[in-house]
């Protein structure tokens, strides 16, 4: 089973890997809406080239 099928159940909206655009305004809106003053960033280098990292 593809884990992405669990996204709706968890209420998550995942930007697909073939979408190369980052919507900065959308992210800022999300930060403002929830009044986050601290952001935790998880960065996996597999986003640089998915084929290299299975």
């Amino acid at each position: 089973m593809d884990e992405k099928k669990l996204l709706p159940e968890l209420g998550l909206d995942y930007q697909l890997e073939d979408d190369q655009q980052v919507d900065v305004k959308k992210i800022q809106k999300w930060i403002d809406q929830h009044h986050f003053s601290k952001i935790l960033v998880h960065f996996d280098i597999d986003v640089l080239d998915r084929k290299l990292f299975f």
Binding site: L7, L12, K38, L40, V41, F43, D46, V47
Partner: peptide
């Protein structure tokens, strides 16, 4: 605290 998750897998 909010999380920004940048990853080829969720």
């Amino acid at each position: 605290v909010g999380i920004i998750w940048i990853d080829a897998h969720p």
